[in-house]
């Protein structure tokens, strides 16, 4: 997947000011930035939910799966009913088989009959992702997938997502947690106020931070990253 010079305006505000990047199969790309940086806007343009005011997006063969920041599922239906509905809407030949597959993948087989509203946020997020996977995407877009999850749930989520990437899916996820971006992303795209400040491997980001904010180099990475953003004028 490739994007070049993406621009998005909301009235006078430019949410994206010419952002470009590319992602390869099996790659896990972390889009990191503070709230309001333009992460959701970027991902929703990649997903085709919103149209960009400028620039272009190239998707290779295959579909793009999209998992919105807020779980998009029916909380009054059961896990199984949700999966079945979307499998049918995706026009799967054997929707029930797809449901079984997703129940295995999410590890929610025993909870298939439960009303989604009664599940924990982590489990809801897993179903949210599973629904995104029902389109059998070659590129999966995850918008802040770990928000609201405790550390154990996060660990399980990333295990699950890494396994997907391992099977050949391109995963692009957004987060405002630098540690998460560094740990799980093969590549990191730093967004601030609609600008791409950095695009490269996580280790290179550490070097760039040390170089540009030397006074915070011996502090923890998060503090140093904030200082780096500050140096860049954000």
């Amino acid at each position: 997947m490739q994007a070049r010079g993406l621009v998005k305006r909301f009235g006078d505000r430019e949410a994206l000011k010419g952002v470009g990047f590319s992602a390869e199969p099996r790659e896990l790309v972390a889009v990191i930035g503070p709230n309001g940086a333009g992460k959701t806007t970027l991902l929703s343009i990649l997903a085709g939910i919103q149209a960009a005011d400028g620039g272009e997006v190239e998707t290779g063969d295959g579909t793009v799966g999209w998992v919105p920041q807020q779980a998009a599922l029916y909380r009054r239906l059961t896990v199984e009913e949700n999966l079945l509905l979307f499998a049918r809407l995706e026009k799967h030949e054997d929707p029930s088989a797809s449901v079984e597959e997703m129940l295995d993948l999410t590890g929610l087989r025993e909870r298939r009959g439960e009303i989604v509203a009664r599940l924990s946020g982590g489990n809801q997020q897993r179903i949210n992702i599973a629904i995104g996977l029902l389109s059998r995407p070659s590129v999966l877009l995850l918008d802040e997938p770990s928000v609201g999850l405790d550390s154990r749930q996060r660990a399980r989520l990333w295990e699950f997502v890494s396994a997907l990437a391992g099977r050949g899916t391109t995963v692009i996820f957004s987060t405002h947690d630098i540690q998460e971006a560094e740990r799980y992303g093969n590549r990191v795209l730093v967004l601030a106020d609609g600008e791409a400040l950095f695009d490269g491997p996580a280790e290179e980001l550490r070097e760039a931070v040390r170089r540009e904010a030397p006074e915070a180099a011996d502090r923890d990475f998060e503090t140093a990253f904030v200082a780096y953003l500050h140096h860049r004028g954000h």
Binding site: A47, G48, I49, W66, A72, L73, L89, E90, I131
Partner: peptide, 13 residues
């Protein structure tokens, strides 16, 4: 409210 609209209209319906 369930945020389903964008997901549905993204090619499903």
């Amino acid at each position: 409210e369930e945020n389903a609209y964008p997901r549905l209209t993204r090619g499903l319906v």
